[in-house]
Simulated assay, not measured.
Amino acid sequence: MEVEEPGGATRGRRRGRTTLLIAAATVLGVVAGTCAGYLIQADRDPTPLPSLSQPTLAQATGPAPEPLSAAQDRRVKTDGDLRKLLLKKPAGAKGADWLGDDDRWLDLASYAELYEDPAGALSDQLGDDFRRAATTGWASGDKEVTIRLIQYRQEESLVAADEASDGQYWADKEASTRSWAIPGTGDGKAYVHDKPDTEFGYLPIYGAEAYAWRGDVVMEIRVWDTKPLTKKTIIDLAERQMERL
């Protein structure tokens, strides 16, 4: 119940005298119990503490373990020549003219030029601690393939995973697109775009792409053809390339 004060203000109900007496008795009981506890403890013998010394552990004997081989330690491979991890050009295919010189290294500026906004891509890649990239490609009939491996320093975050996810995001946004998981990659994905790019005077161009990552390396694959591309084409390329990382 609340009492109306002059001027329209209200105030809460006051505590009664009985409540204050009970509170005072409770405080006195706590104080008395505490004092009694100290007196009982004072009459007891002190409890001995456990020894601070610990038993000496026996040193393992035998030869030191052998270092991991390149097949077991992937850093041995990815810290070496990144170009050696790229898929080899298939027999009968010709080298890609669009790759320019044959050293297959792709510097940061050249990689940024592959984006619709090169200046923005350059800034983003610098912020993501771009380390290096290697590329290869070939043409077989009307089909063209480009593969890129991009490596990051990853001193503060898993940039490679984010970069692969970003590629997947944009691939998913294209109309008439089918996608599949790349076996053995966890979250790698491959895409086939069933709607071709068309331009007057030219044959329609169909596309497929794949994105995955392992450790600090991102894999990007792009395929173009004048005929519709299949799931098998892009999945096979992606699986074989990821097996080399």
Rank of each mutant, 00 (worst) to 15 (best):
E4L: 15
E4G: 10
G12P: 10
R17K: 12
T19H: 13
T19D: 12
L20Y: 14
V27S: 11
V27L: 15
V27A: 13
L28P: 01
G29M: 14
V30L: 08
V30D: 05
A32F: 11
G37I: 03
I40H: 15
D43H: 13
D43Y: 11
D45K: 08
D45R: 14
D45H: 15
P46W: 05
P48N: 01
P48T: 00
L49H: 08
P50E: 03
Q54L: 15
P55H: 05
P55F: 08
T56W: 11
A58S: 07
G62Y: 09
E66P: 00
E66S: 08
S69I: 04
S69E: 07
S69D: 11
A71R: 14
Q72E: 15
D73G: 05
R74Q: 06
R74V: 02
V76D: 10
V76A: 07
D79Y: 08
D81K: 05
L82N: 00
K84Q: 15
K84I: 07
L87V: 02
P90F: 11
A91G: 06
G92E: 04
G95E: 07
G95C: 00
L99T: 00
G100A: 06
D103P: 00
L106Y: 01
Y111T: 02
Y111F: 14
A112G: 00
A112H: 05
E113F: 00
D117V: 03
D117T: 06
D117K: 14
G120D: 08
S123W: 10
Q125L: 13
L126S: 10
L126E: 15
F130W: 07
R131N: 10
R132T: 05
A134M: 01
A134F: 06
T135H: 01
G141L: 03
G141A: 08
K143A: 11
T146A: 11
T146W: 04
T146P: 00
I150D: 04
I150A: 10
R153T: 08
R153Q: 13
A160E: 02
D162T: 07
E163C: 02
E163P: 01
D166R: 15
W170T: 04
W170H: 10
A171D: 05
E174Y: 08
S176D: 15
S176V: 10
S176K: 09
T177S: 03
I182M: 03
P183S: 05
T185R: 00
G186W: 07
V192H: 02
H193Q: 12
D194G: 05
K195N: 09
P196S: 09
D197N: 14
D197S: 09
F200H: 11
F200L: 13
F200R: 13
G201S: 06
L203Y: 14
I205T: 07
Y206G: 02
A208V: 13
A208Y: 04
D216Y: 04
D216A: 03
E220K: 09
E220N: 11
E220Q: 12
V223I: 10
D225P: 02
T226F: 11
P228E: 14
L229Y: 06
T233A: 07
T233H: 14
I235S: 04
D236C: 08
L237H: 01
L237C: 05
A238M: 07
E239W: 02
Q241H: 08
Q241K: 02
R244V: 03
L245M: 15
L245N: 05
L245C: 01
